[in-house]
């Protein structure tokens, strides 16, 4: 995938570019807002990682300019402003996701890849299929093979999010944000407990598990 990183902090940018390249992406870098906007409008990227605090231009202005010219490239906004309100403003301006500094690179990768997938398959689905797992989004039923699995509403939402990102890592923070709409860092292993409950229901009794723990990053649902 071809990515654009707009970030003025040289060290942060170098680290980001290196990490993304090692994950197999092609990366362009712009060190200020004008250059960033110019690159974003003249070339085609699959996603843009954009710092909010830039010399020359506010990151939000770049997003707004892109959206005004009907450029749909997914944008992940980075910011040191750690407040929900800023998150809301960032998303309203047309950003697709928002991450506050300092962030874990694994978190950034997981979110970025989630954006890239969203950019790829835009159509509304009524059924999600991961291996032998079949999720009916309308009837809100789940089957693994031929066996119907009873899920509580919150377990269904959790599984749905994992299935939409099947094959990719989703972090605990992403789950807490997307499934429960909470933006805080729990002191307890609350997400792990929910995952293990879900695992009990979808993996128990099967030789090959589908719901995997990715150490130091999060979870991943993939075909057995």
């Amino acid at each position: 995938m071809k990515l654009l990183v707009v970030e003025d902090d040289r060290e942060a940018a170098a680290f980001l570019v290196k990490g993304l390249k090692e994950s197999g992406h092609t990366v362009d870098h712009a060190a200020d807002g004008r250059e960033g906007l110019m690159l974003a409008t003249t070339e085609r990227f699959d996603a843009i990682v954009l710092d909010r605090m830039l010399p020359g231009m506010d990151g939000l202005a770049i997003v707004a300019a892109l959206r005004a010219s009907e450029n749909p490239t997914p944008v992940l906004i980075l910011s040191a402003l750690d407040q929900v309100d800023d998150r809301v403003r960032g998303l309203k301006a047309g950003g697709d996701d928002y991450l506050t500094k300092p962030y874990a690179f694994s978190e950034l990768m997981a979110r970025l890849e989630s954006l890239l997938r969203r950019g790829a398959g835009g159509k509304t689905l009524t059924t999600l299929k991961v291996g032998e797992l079949e999720i009916d989004l309308l009837a809100r039923t789940v089957r693994r093979g031929t066996v119907e699995i009873e899920l509580l509403p919150r377990e269904f939402r959790l599984l749905e999010y994992l299935a939409r990102n099947a094959g990719h890592v989703v972090t605990r923070t992403m789950l807490l944000e997307q499934v429960w709409d909470y933006h805080f860092d729990p002191q307890t292993n609350v997400i792990d407990v929910h995952i293990s409950r879900l695992r009990q229901k979808i993996d128990k009794g099967y030789a090959k598990p589908m719901l995997h723990t990715v150490r130091g990053a999060g979870y991943c649902l993939k075909a057995a």
Binding site: V84, Y182, H183, F184, P186, Q187, T188
Partner: peptide
Amino acid sequence: HMLSRAIANLVENALK
């Protein structure tokens, strides 16, 4: 969001 953080702290203390 702020309230959820605050109240979650109380619940987590009780759990702990």
